[in-house]
Nucleic acid binder design. Sequence first.
DNA 1: ATGACTGCAAAGACTTTGCATCTTT
DNA 2: AAAGATGCAAAGTCTTTGCAGTCAT
Lengths: 135, 135
Amino acid sequence: MENKRKHSRKRDAILDCMRNTTCHPTAEWVYQQLKPIYPDLSLGTVYRNLAMFKETGTIQSIGVVGGLERYDAQVKPHAHFICTCCGKVEDLPMAAPAPALLEDAGRLAEATVTGYQLQFTGLCSGCNKKSEPKN
Amino acid sequence: MENKRKHSRKRDAILDCMRNTTCHPTAEWVYQQLKPIYPDLSLGTVYRNLAMFKETGTIQSIGVVGGLERYDAQVKPHAHFICTCCGKVEDLPMAAPAPALLEDAGRLAEATVTGYQLQFTGLCSGCNKKSEPKN
DNA sequence: ATGACTGCAAAGACTTTGCATCTTT
DNA sequence: AAAGATGCAAAGTCTTTGCAGTCAT
């Protein structure tokens, strides 16, 4: 008693869209991608489905960048780099903090730690180029 | 030519307020704390000053939790624990990622990495108690 | 006096929701 | 047919901003 109904053409398209990009999209971005294909798609539907996928752990949110929530279909642990200039988000295939770290954190916080996020911030190569030349 | 004027009673009070708490406040929280003391304080002023302190590096933002931006007057590197249930944020005096990690991240992202954030999520002790008993 | 800071309220920006309608099973 | 998903637009939240008045030097 748990698989009521989980598919609809649009819902599937939204998940596909998420899984076929590495840009850590916003709801609006997903909407813009699919709008040409599903002209009657509604932004509300995108929000609703992303929220639902997040809820079920199918995707994750990597936080709010510049006022926009960014989602990621890659839910295995990995770090992110976020450009503070243009907002670009990239995956960093770095070693994950050892499980021991989670335990340490849990002990320190006297809490049950279930996840973590490691993100680096700075200027991406593109923004670097734009800002460095003293033209 | 840079120190126009940087003090006002309210601005100082906002910074003091930030420095005298460990709760990683929201703008609203700071506002509520100071309102009794400065009855004519405006929420806009709190937002404006927090934004300015963040800009100058006097405080930092630790991200948006449950829709509210959380600030931290502690700007030295440290990790955070965030309760996904009640939104509580705690400092974790954990070893910071070695500087080498920043370099690795920079190399991986082909970027200039200037900072990082490490945060753990889970249930705090309070929320744990509430949810575990099967009453 | 003068430039900076603030209060107030309106405006913005992103996200959520209610309800009637359309889909999927 | 029944349960669920969607479109649309209105409502909600949090945050930012314009402007006239106030404050600190």
